[in-house]
Amino acid sequence: MGHFVGVDVSLELSSVCVVDTTGQVVKEAKVSTEPAELVRFVQNLGLEVERIGLEAGPLSAWLHDGLAGAGLEVVLLETRHVRAALSAMVIKTDRRDARGAQLLRMGWYRPVHRKAAPSQEVRALLVGRKLLVAKLVDVDGGIRGMLRGFGLKVGPVGRAGLPRRVRDLVEGHAVLRSILEPLLAAREAIRTELARLHGQVLALARTDEVCQRLMTAPGVGAVVALTFRSGIDDPTRFRSSRALGPYLGLTPRRYQSGETDVSGGISRAGDTMVRAALYEAATVILSRAVRFSTLKRWAMAVAARRGVKRARVALAQKLSTVLHRIWVERTTFRWAGEAHTSGRAA
């Protein structure tokens, strides 16, 4: 008789539940959140384990690799599906969450793709860069807000010219200068490290053939290309390019019951970073003077009918389809009047 193991992952101790094919709970335990400890627990059961389920999360990929490396059948479970399936429980505990093993037994789950190590490394680089960008914006806003309280207005000035402008404003204000100088020094350190990380992003994009092809599309630079590549990881796991829109949460929600049929805003499911990158690329295409293309013509027609905001979302969805086709077919973006060029061998 086969058995299924559900693991509710926590930082120190994970709750584990083992059920048989009839749904009967065979064993429950707390196990240290380490791959070796989980492998030892499963092996010491002395039972035939068909599948182990981990809810997707920060530690899940690491645990997945350790369990799979020991020859165990393990899957990552889509978080929204698990939450929806367990939402009927009045009381929520880690022990009850581990009973998600019942989902494995019944097949009521959606497996999550385990990204390759290179894609995880690229994502870590992009997250680090994004973090420094956010901190730089926070420091700039904090400096401006602090000066505004004293009636000192920085006004429109570039990032490079901000320190000089701030020092000119606080000339003669000893206390303000003593406060702002450390902030300006920290700001300069952030800019230096941000430039270093951004240089790594550009270097990766220059040496990656897929990114070079993706960057032929309008609005797609090194950051967008690397974000899309690391987020999708394996383009062949999608049966159709049009599947990327729903996967990335760029399609409308829908609720239908009886006479009620409501379409809402986009679902915002899937990878937030990829969705945001595509939206930024769509914004660039619509708002900046980039080379005219069929994509921009189509988006402008949508904007005329439905408004600019909806046109950006629609263009982001369409761009995801275009980038996927470029990747799968090993082509480049076809501008109006250009012949089709394929990278496939003849």
Rank of each mutant, 00 (worst) to 15 (best):
V139I: 15
A185F: 07
G158I: 11
L183D: 00
F150A: 08
T192G: 02
D140K: 07
A174P: 05
D168G: 15
R165N: 06
M146S: 02
V154N: 07
V157N: 12
G141W: 02
E171Q: 13
V137F: 08
V166W: 07
D140A: 11
R191K: 08
A174L: 09
V170R: 09
G155Q: 14
A195S: 14
L152Q: 12
V175N: 05
G158F: 02
M146A: 10
L152S: 15
V154R: 09
L152W: 12
L162H: 09
V137C: 14
P182N: 07
L194N: 14
G149L: 10
L194Y: 15
F150V: 14
H173C: 03
I143F: 01
G145E: 01
R159I: 06
L176H: 12
G142D: 01
D140C: 10
G151K: 10
A160T: 11
L194Q: 14
L147G: 05
E188T: 03
E181H: 01
A174I: 05
G158L: 09
H173R: 04
L183H: 03
L194G: 14
A189W: 11
E171M: 02
L152E: 11
A186N: 05
P182F: 12
L147Q: 10
P156A: 15
P156E: 14
L176K: 02
G155E: 12
V154M: 11
G158A: 08
A195L: 14
P182A: 11
T192I: 11
D140N: 13
G151V: 09
A189L: 14
G158R: 11
V175T: 11
G161F: 13
V137M: 13
K153T: 13
G172M: 12
G149S: 06
D140F: 02
I190G: 05
L169M: 06
R191C: 01
R167Y: 06
E181P: 02
G145W: 03
L162Y: 00
R187A: 02
A189F: 06
L169P: 02
R167N: 10
R187Y: 01
A185L: 13
I143R: 00
G158P: 13
T192A: 13
R177W: 08
V139T: 12
K153S: 15
G149F: 09
E193W: 08
V154S: 07
R159S: 05
I179Y: 05
S178K: 09
V137H: 15
G141C: 09
R177G: 09
L176R: 08
V157D: 13
V157L: 09
R187S: 05
D140Y: 01
E193G: 05
P182S: 13
G158Y: 05
R164K: 14
D168F: 03
A174K: 07
V157K: 10
G151D: 06
R187D: 08
P163F: 06
P182K: 15
L180Q: 11
P163D: 15
A186K: 05
G161D: 10
L147Y: 04
V139M: 01
R165P: 03
P163H: 12
I179E: 04
R187E: 03
L162V: 04
L180G: 00
R164V: 00
G172C: 06
I143L: 00
A195M: 07
V175D: 10
A185Q: 05
S178A: 15
K153N: 13
P182I: 11
P182D: 13
L147E: 08
E171V: 00
R167K: 15
S178T: 09
G172R: 11
D138L: 04
R191H: 04
